[in-house]
Amino acid sequence: MTQMHPTETAEQHAAFNARIARGEKIEPGDWMPAEYRRQLIRMISQHAHSEVVGMLPEGEWITRAPTLKRKTILIAKVQDEAGHGQYLYHAAETLGATRGEMLDALLSGKAKYSSIFNYPTHTWADVGMIGWLVDGAAIKNQTMLAGCSYGPYSRAMVRICSEETFHHKQGKEMIVQYAQGTPEQRQMAQDALNRWWWPALMMLGPHDADSPNTGALAGWGIKLKTNDEVRQEFINEHAPELLEAGLTIPDPDLHQDESGNWIHGPINWDEFWAVVKGQQGLNKERLGARQQAHDDGAWVREAMQAYAARQMGQAAD
């Protein structure tokens, strides 16, 4: 049963739920339960923050990309993440949130972002592995969200998925090449897989039994699949491809069951929660980098406002 705000009536909820059941998209001006709005702002802003913080781990390698082409691709990829952040902040704005409030919530630590971006990038091959696994996992999740009931979020996901598909392809292309490259390159690719495999599985969220928001979100057509279902899709696609590339997946229990599903061994959720809570990983450094950019840019934003006010004043004269 979904939560009802004191000012809301059972009839309103019934009519709203009927729209969801008919597969209609909910648009910004439509009536919606306060809890639906709250959950969406939480999810969309968290997603936007993930894109923005997600620029950092790969962005660190822009200055070290080993060819002119790779450098151009990497700048373009990080630029896409900024663009995704921008669409998503706008999608959340349609629900009444402001960019200022959302950024404050990120910088104060009140809002979360995907903890996958708190893992360090140790070598250039991490850029490829993030594209292949992290973007690969994100695509599975975002393809599901493209079918969600809130129109602006659903449409943002369609656009984002098409760009993420390029990210995924370039990451896979890199790793497949390195896996057949010099011994140093092969080692770099394997080492990157060893470090990113488990975090990629964990980024799709806790097991269904431990996922507190899944029920309500599924009822409102926001989340159309469970975390475990999406994780299974991800493993079924990626495990055979990684093996075909000649890499070793760091899970001795990984096997295919009789129905063809790839079954993983136990996940270390203690690590997941430690990273989510910032006890492990680079949460402090990531937020520090965002805070620094925000602070260093304060005088620029003030100048933009002063200039805009001056232009308006001149236009009014």
Binding site: T63, T72, Q79, R301
Partner: peptide, 29 residues
């Protein structure tokens, strides 16, 4: 210019300056 990617004063400039950097690399190529 690429050193700014992810660190610009506003998100819109992360996008714009990254675009300029890509163009300059394209010209070099």
């Amino acid at each position: 210019d690429g050193e700014w990617t992810g660190h610009a004063p506003i998100l819109e400039e992360d996008i714009a300056l990254a675009n300029i950097a890509q163009d300059e690399l394209g010209h070099a190529g």
